[in-house]
């Protein structure tokens, strides 16, 4: 009597029915290259790769960087959709390269890979994230309490109160939403969806006491009122946060506070 483990090992030796001998297909990666030390303009560069379509775009970029052209520059850290380093514009849509499978984005056509829009490109797929983080810092993304003494116990919160802002705690600050926002593309002064999402996370936190202050910051000319509800941010969010809804909730909080 064979154990299940041995059965599995036997089966692994034979190709599954319906599959070719090699799982690899040829994919063209069309990467937006920019190197300010070589040329003032960005150009497209094509790379032909033999790759398993069940692999991710990030694996393709690794193949290029490690085996083909070591000068290709991009950010990635955890490579598992948590750190938010590798947001890029893949086939015209902001995604995380580490969460995008090649088979899901039509590998028969060249896969275009560009840096996210609205931020200054430093090299290849690396952009200057400073304006993005500046907007993030501006909304005070930390717990503020008025008490001056050290707390002597935990700050309790009911599950319902926690649920109120659960969606916006998922943000990984990858900038996929902010760099998909056409209002942010214009002059970059708009706070952007990500900053508003992170303000939302504290505005609706029952333990926080600076909600009023954050609402005042977002009541600014470049605050929530510049949102045009185009839903680009919601579509782009790799964490599935309902970004536009969060922005609308901040707007509603501002209005009900006033009137």
């Amino acid at each position: 009597m064979a154990t299940p483990v041995l059965d599995k090992a036997d089966a692994a030796g034979q190709p599954e029915p319906g599959f070719a001998d090699s799982p690899y297909i040829t994919v063209t990666f069309r990467v937006r290259r920019f190197n300010p030390e070589v040329a003032a303009e960005a150009t497209w560069e094509d790379f032909q790769l033999e790759i398993d379509p069940k692999e991710r775009v990030l694996d393709g970029l690794h193949k290029i960087k490690w085996d083909v052209d070591g000068t290709l520059t991009f950010r990635r850290s955890c490579a598992h959709g948590i750190c938010g380093s590798d947001a890029m514009r893949i086939n015209g849509k902001n995604r995380l390269a580490c969460k995008t499978l090649i088979k899901d984005i039509n590998p028969e056509k060249p896969i275009t890979i560009e840096p996210i829009k609205g931020l200054t490109v430093l090299k290849d797929l690396v952009v200057d994230m400073e304006p993005f983080f500046q907007a993030y810092r501006d909304v005070m993304p930390f717990l503020v309490v008025k008490e001056t003494n050290e707390p002597t116990r935990e700050r309790y919160q009911s599950p319902e109160d926690r649920e109120r802002f659960d969606d916006t705690t998922k943000c990984i600050l990858c900038a996929a939403c902010t760099s998909s926002c056409p209002v942010f593309w214009n002059d970059g002064q708009y706070f952007g969806p990500a900053a508003i999402v992170n303000a939302h996370r504290f505005i609706f936190d029952s333990r926080d006491e600076a909600g009023e202050q954050r609402l005042e910051i977002l009541n600014d000319r470049d605050g929530v009122w510049r949102c045009r509800t185009t839903f680009n941010c919601t579509d782009a969010c790799p964490r599935g946060i309902e970004v536009t809804k969060a922005i609308q909730e901040v707007k509603r909080a501002l209005i009900t506070r006033r009137y």
Partner: peptide
């Protein structure tokens, strides 16, 4: 050396000052 790329979206003295007031809220409403 290559020319320094000035970040166009940096918050400098020239970038618009933040506004306090409810004009945008009123306009939206």
């Amino acid at each position: 050396p290559a020319p320094l790329i000035e970040a166009p979206r940096k918050r400098t003295k020239k970038s618009p000052k933040s506004t306090r007031g409810n004009f945008e809220l009123a306009a939206w409403l």
